[in-house]
């Protein structure tokens, strides 16, 4: 038995992660020491970022920006889900619709959707809805294609059993299709969320500077690097938290399918 294995509970946890904690603390200290020697217009260091974060938070700037950003993100993403899942289901169900849409969808899928931002600015303007449109556009296709992919990998025999027992279209959708493609929907939702975050940041850079992306650009052109890093940190933390949640949901959905498979 190694000394590590003899420890129990939180103590063991602490011992396990001690080297990592030491390394990261060391790196932060090095950054702090080295960063203080650099021009503040060009570089920064952890305590300055902390101060900037406090200043942004206490002035209410940060709270407002987070609110603005989340509004764009959630609305655009919500619309992406609301369009992507049903359209994916329809295209999966009706072969003709699938063939009709596939050239167009393919073109959008392989092209960076960000390229359409200049056109969105011309068509929708530079307001709130332009940003929502960007987020929607960026996440829609990932959701759509994953649902469609799920539909195409759905086992035919489940469908036939349901039909043999006289299930109608709505019952098949509820009892066979939706549970069957749940893991694919969950994957699409996670990938879509990641893309929606990118759409949020990019649209805030290009369309009417506000939200967290706006803070980044505002302070970077004023050479206030510490404030830029503060906003970057907030976005990274929010993004990682949301993605971790999405990943957990996805694993639950996949887990459901595995256990269902074992049951049969």
């Amino acid at each position: 038995m190694t000394p590590l294995e003899r420890l129990r509970g939180p103590k063991r946890h602490l011992a396990r992660w001690a080297p990592q904690t030491a390394i990261w603390t060391g790196l932060l200290v090095l950054w702090e020491i080295w960063g203080r020697g650099q021009s503040p217009f060009f570089f920064t260091y952890p305590t300055a970022i902390g101060r900037a974060l406090l200043r942004l938070a206490s002035s209410g700037e940060l709270g407002q920006a987070i609110l603005d950003s989340l509004q764009v993100l959630l609305l655009g993403y919500g619309l992406g889900v609301a369009a992507g899942v049903p359209l994916g289901l329809l295209a999966g169900r009706f072969a003709y619709l699938r063939r009709l849409l596939s050239p167009l969808m393919m073109a959008f899928y392989v092209t960076p959707r960000l390229a359409l931002i200049p056109l969105i600015i011309i068509w929708v303007g530079i307001g709130f809805w332009a940003k929502v449109t960007v987020v929607w556009l960026v996440c829609f296709f990932a959701i759509f294609f994953n649902v469609l992919h799920g539909m195409s990998s759905l086992s035919r025999s489940y469908l036939e059993v349901a039909q043999a027992y006289g299930a109608n279209e709505a019952q098949i959708l509820r009892e066979v299709t939706l549970p069957g493609i749940l893991p694919f929907i969950a994957t699409g939702l996670r990938l879509g969320l990641g893309l929606a975050l990118i759409g949020m940041v990019v649209s805030e850079f290009l369309i009417g500077l506000n939200g967290l992306g706006g803070i980044i650009v505002y302070y970077s052109v004023r050479l206030r690097v510490a404030d830029v890093f503060a906003a970057v940190t907030v976005i990274v933390v929010i993004g990682t938290a949301l993605m971790t949640g999405a990943r957990a949901l996805e694993q639950r959905a996949a887990h459901w399918q595995l256990s269902a498979r074992a049951f049969r």
């Binding site: 990592q20 990641g194 990118i198 992306g213 980044i216 976005i235 993605m243």
Partner: peptide, 26 residues
């Protein structure tokens, strides 16, 4: 993995575009 894995995961999932203004600066 234990030391730098979390950083890779964070940079993998977070929007990278936030670094663009810094790149322009540097």
């Amino acid at each position: 993995d234990r030391t730098f894995g979390p950083l890779v995961t964070i940079l993998f999932v977070a929007p990278r575009e936030v670094f663009v203004p810094l790149l322009v600066l540097w």
